[in-house]
């Protein structure tokens, strides 16, 4: 009986934490999002759908949502392409340098997001290292525009989110029974066939988790898009931030945030259902 009570108390702590730090602010966000913006005031007035009417009727918000999803999806794809081989290597290697390589892979997380973004600006600007090197190699005759556009945002966001993809896939690969790969090889499968027919299909849950995690983090990031997108590329978090910090309209900023939340939730659920169906069919 006492043990049961303790277990509930232990469970109660994270529930309380969640309620205080997520559910309560979310309810406040809902209240503000559905309030009427008032001139010269920040927090909005009575219940109103005005903010959402504006969002659904003004093409700016639809276009911006599309840009945000496109950036999130591109980053998820880029981290998957870069992260899978890296995760496979880290999961399989017996090298003594494994710890160091893992540290290198995780290193973007240890650096401040602002410092990292400015680092990319220095590297990718017209007079930066990348353009200078490409020009010296004779590959280009004038600088390629790598920042203040979507390219810059994708490059910098891929860098920071790569560890999340690698960790998700690595966890999945490490839980695979190596005997399955040996069995496939003993039946005559070549290494690439083992990879294609055994390793990749069995690591798909990790891939799916990584893609989802990176996509969600990608669409909700705002420091990198602000700094690497200049004033040119608008994403939904940047739009929301503009409303909070330059228009002082928390009501509309909240509505934009809720709209993004609903869109991402919808995409995530759809993706999850699609994937679950595929995985179930694969297992059958």
């Amino acid at each position: 009986m006492r043990r049961n009570w303790l277990a509930w108390a232990w469970l109660g702590l994270p529930i309380l934490y969640f309620c205080l730090l997520f559910a309560v602010p979310l309810i406040d966000l809902l209240r503000m999002g559905f309030s009427k913006p008032l001139p010269q005031r920040i927090t909005g007035g009575d219940f109103s759908l005005d903010n959402f009417v504006e969002i659904f009727t003004n093409p700016l918000y639809r276009d911006t949502l599309w840009v945000t999803i496109r950036i999130g999806a591109t980053v998820a794809l880029a981290t998957l392409l870069l992260g899978y081989p890296l995760a496979l290597f880290l999961a399989r290697t017996q090298s003594r340098a494994k710890g160091f390589l893992l540290f290198l892979t995780l290193s973007p997380i240890f650096i401040s997001v602002v410092v990292r973004a400015y680092g990319w600006i220095v590297l990718l600007s017209n007079k930066g290292l990348v353009n200078s090197a490409l020009m010296q190699l004779g590959l280009i005759t004038r600088p390629v525009r790598l920042i203040f556009n979507e390219t810059g945002i994708v490059i910098a966001t891929t860098h920071v989110l790569l560890p999340f993809m690698v960790l998700a896939i690595m966890g999945s690969l490490q839980s695979l029974d190596i005997a399955l790969e040996d069995a496939a090889a003993s039946l005559g499968a070549r290494r690439w066939q083992v990879l294609r027919d055994v390793v990749i299909p069995l690591s798909l849950p990790g891939v799916a988790a990584g893609v989802m995690l990176v996509f969600i983090l990608g669409v909700s990031s705002f420091v990198t898009p602000i700094l690497l997108g200049g004033q040119v590329v608008l994403t939904m978090p940047v739009l929301a931030l503009q409303q909070f910090t330059t228009a002082f309209n928390w009501a509309f900023g909240s509505a934009i945030t809720l709209f993004l939340l609903a869109a991402v939730l919808g995409i995530t659920i759809a993706y999850d259902r699609l994937l679950q169906g595929r995985l179930a069919r694969g297992a059958a």
Binding site: N58, L60, T64, F148, V232, L234, Q242, N249
Partner: peptide, 17 residues
Amino acid sequence: DAWLSRWNAEIRPLLKG
């Protein structure tokens, strides 16, 4: 607020960075 929406829609696409 209205100006910001207009700025984002009309001016921003013309900018280079």
